[in-house]
Lab assay of single mutants.
Amino acid sequence: MDVFMKGLSKAKEGVVAAAEKTKQGVAEAAGKTKEGVLYVGSKTKEGVVHGVATVAEKTKEQVTNVGGAVVTGVTAVAQKTVEGAGSIAAATGFVKKDQLGKNEEGAPQEGILEDMPVDPDNEAYEMPSEEGYQDYEPEA
């Protein structure tokens, strides 16, 4: 019985440690998101679009440190934060509304985080759909 109880105690310690790591990862992701939003706020009209992409990228980098179902929630929060940063930029006159959601080359930025393969159960990952990809044929 002692062996059984000791095993359960060790398992509990492992769960607590994993929860603490997840909590730490979420806190880091939130900190990076805040950094990115402050970065966007300090940019001029020309830099705002690039700044919004930076927020998304920093958040995406930190999301990889967070495991399990938390990833889905962090990704949703990050996307809403990026959308909010863009709205703030438009409201303050840093950028025109028609410039939001495009990178410096004018290509749409939507789907940055949505296409990231995420499995809350950590069982399997699927690649994003290939609808947006084109076949590449090298020139002879």
Rank of each mutant, 00 (worst) to 15 (best):
T33I: 07
S9F: 15
T81P: 01
A107K: 08
V95N: 13
S9Q: 06
E114A: 11
I112V: 12
G68T: 08
T92R: 01
E57A: 07
Y125M: 02
V70R: 01
Q134K: 15
K96Y: 14
E46S: 05
N103E: 06
E46H: 09
Q134P: 11
P120F: 15
M5Y: 01
D121G: 08
T92H: 04
G36V: 10
V82Y: 04
T64N: 07
E139W: 10
G84Y: 06
V70T: 03
P117V: 14
G68S: 13
V52W: 07
T22H: 03
G84H: 13
L113N: 08
P117F: 07
T92K: 08
D135W: 08
V3P: 00
I88S: 06
K32R: 08
I88M: 07
S87E: 01
A91P: 14
T54Y: 12
S42G: 08
K32T: 06
L113C: 08
P120V: 03
V3H: 13
V48R: 02
A76T: 13
Y39W: 11
G31T: 12
F4C: 06
E61Q: 10
D135N: 10
K6N: 07
E20V: 04
D98H: 07
I88E: 04
K43C: 10
V77S: 02
D121K: 13
G84P: 02
V82K: 09
L113I: 12
A78P: 01
P138Y: 10
V95T: 12
E123L: 09
G93N: 08
V63T: 04
A30D: 00
D135H: 15
Q79L: 13
E13N: 13
G86A: 08
K23E: 00
S9I: 13
D135M: 14
G84N: 15
G106K: 12
A85W: 03
N65D: 03
N122D: 12
K10T: 11
T64I: 15
L8E: 00
G73I: 10
E130D: 07
T33R: 01
Q99T: 09
Q62F: 12
I112E: 08
A11T: 05
S129H: 12
G14Q: 12
D2H: 15
A91Q: 10
E114N: 09
V16F: 13
V48K: 01
D115H: 05
T75D: 04
K43P: 00
N122L: 11
T44K: 01
A140T: 14
E131R: 02
S9P: 00
A91R: 02
K96W: 15
D121H: 12
T44M: 12
A76H: 11
A140F: 07
Q79C: 12
V71L: 14
A56K: 09
Q62L: 07
G51V: 12
G132R: 06
E20S: 04
K58P: 01
E61H: 07
A27V: 08
E123V: 12
A19R: 03
S129W: 12
G101T: 06
L38E: 05
G41A: 00
E57C: 08
A56E: 01
P128N: 10
A124V: 11
A30S: 02
E123P: 01
P108G: 13
K10M: 03
V95S: 06
G51S: 12
T64K: 10
Q109F: 03
K12F: 07
G51C: 14
A29G: 03
P128K: 09
G93Q: 05
G7K: 02
D98A: 15
A53M: 14
A124Q: 09
G84W: 04
K6C: 05
F4Y: 11
P108K: 08
T22Y: 11
T54R: 12
K102H: 10
E83M: 14
Q24C: 12
K97T: 07
K34R: 12
G36L: 02
E105Q: 13
G132E: 14
A76L: 06
Y136V: 07
E139T: 02
M5I: 00
T22W: 08
G93F: 09
K32Q: 08
A17D: 14
D135R: 03
V40A: 08
E110F: 06
A85Y: 12
K43G: 01
Y136E: 11
A27C: 03
G47P: 02
K32S: 11
E110C: 08
A90V: 12
E20N: 10
E57G: 09
K23S: 14
I88K: 02
G51T: 13
E35G: 08
V77G: 06
G84I: 12
V66F: 11
G68K: 10
P117R: 05
K23Y: 10
V3K: 03
A19G: 15
K96G: 03
N65C: 11
D2F: 13
T44F: 05
Y133P: 14
T72H: 01
G86L: 13
G106D: 03
M1H: 00
D119Q: 13
S42K: 10
A69M: 13
V48E: 01
T59A: 13
M5V: 12
K58W: 02
Y133L: 11
Y136T: 02
A29C: 12
S9Y: 05
A76V: 11
A76W: 02
V55Q: 00
G31M: 00
A29Q: 03
E57K: 09
T81Q: 05
V16P: 01
A17T: 01
S129A: 09
Q24T: 05
G14K: 14
V66M: 14
V26K: 00
G84R: 09
V66L: 07
Y39A: 04
G31I: 09
E126T: 08
A19M: 15
T81K: 05
A90F: 11
Q62M: 11
E13V: 05
E105H: 09
N122Q: 14
T59V: 07
E110H: 04
K12A: 06
N65L: 15
P138L: 11
A89W: 14
M1S: 00
E46M: 09
T92Y: 04
D121C: 09
E137H: 05
E131F: 02
I88F: 09
K60Q: 12
V63M: 02
E130L: 06
G47R: 08
G84E: 09
D98T: 07
E83W: 03
L8T: 00
T92V: 15
T54F: 15
V66T: 04
A19F: 15
K10V: 11
A140I: 05
V49I: 13
V52H: 02
K58G: 01
K60I: 10
G31S: 14
N65K: 12
V66G: 02
T59M: 14
K45L: 13
V63K: 00
V49H: 00
K45Y: 13
F4D: 00
D2Q: 11
V70I: 12
V37I: 14
K12M: 05
V26L: 07
E35Q: 06
V77K: 03
G36C: 02
G47C: 15
E126Y: 08
A17S: 08
M1L: 03
G106Q: 15
V70N: 02
M127C: 03
I88Q: 05
K102W: 11
A140K: 15
A76Q: 10
Q109N: 10
S42V: 10
K32C: 15
A11L: 12
G41L: 10
T44R: 02
A76D: 07
V49Q: 13
Y39N: 08
A76M: 02
V55W: 14
G31K: 14
N122S: 10
V95C: 10
I88W: 05
